[in-house]
């Protein structure tokens, strides 16, 4: 019994301390998640690209909504340069029904998303990456061995509420840096966003 309790305690302790997440320079963890078209999408599917713009986002969050058009524009501007957007919805649809898989399909049709929009049903990818809010960007860069590493983490730009007032386009600057074979600077930024709705 004691051993069992100890084991249980260790399990809880590990799960508490394993939420650190990825840092710039870390290898990006591969995953296979269900896309809005019903297909399964993995990082390894992007082997012919130079990188992937992974964005944890969702349907309901006003910040995510404020950035939808900008995310579409980023994909349209950079997919042909080898940096497509891959949007991941990590939210628990039980706590936010608007973020269900069906609603993701609806939203992507309404907005004509040109990128893959997948669901992280177990929330394990968001946890392993260390995503805490929506939108939360992890820009990945392909290495010579075809593995992806994290090149930039953070915000899309410095003004969610007013596109016209944006002064720092952090994400597109970071992608431009990668295209120019440079390291993004800053390599990480912070932004206000909706907390990811974890399963209870």
């Amino acid at each position: 019994m004691k051993t069992f309790m100890l084991a249980l305690f260790m399990m809880c302790a590990t799960s508490l301390y394993s939420v650190e997440g990825l840092k710039v320079g870390d290898n990006a963890i591969d995953f296979t998640l269900k896309n809005i078209d019903g297909s399964m999408v993995s990082l390894s599917d992007y082997a012919k690209d130079n990188g992937v713009v992974v964005i944890f986002t969702c349907n309901h969050c006003p910040f995510s909504i404020a950035y939808e058009d900008r995310i579409i524009n980023l994909h349209n501007a950079f997919a042909s340069k080898g940096y497509p957007v891959l949007a991941i919805n990590p939210n628990d649809p039980v706590s936010v029904p608007e973020d269900s898989f069906e609603k993701m399909i609806e939203r992507s049709k309404e907005k004509n998303f040109p990128f893959n929009y997948v669901i992280d049903e177990t929330q394990s990818i968001a946890k392993q990456y260390g995503a805490t809010r929506t939108p939360h960007v992890f820009l990945l860069k392909k290495q010579s061995n075809n593995a992806f590493t994290v090149a930039y983490i953070g915000a899309i730009d410095d003004n969610h509420s007013d596109v016209a007032s944006v002064k720092q386009t952090y994400l597109s600057n970071a992608i431009d840096a990668l295209i120019a074979q440079k390291s993004p600077a800053p390599e990480s930024t912070k932004a206000i966003g909706c907390s990811i709705k974890w399963k209870k």
Binding site: D158, S165, K167, A191
Partner: peptide, 20 residues
Amino acid sequence: EPDPNAWIDKIEPSWTGSLP
């Protein structure tokens, strides 16, 4: 305040920016 990246750390360095 615009640009949360410029002020979040001044309020609390460990804050990643999610609410609440």
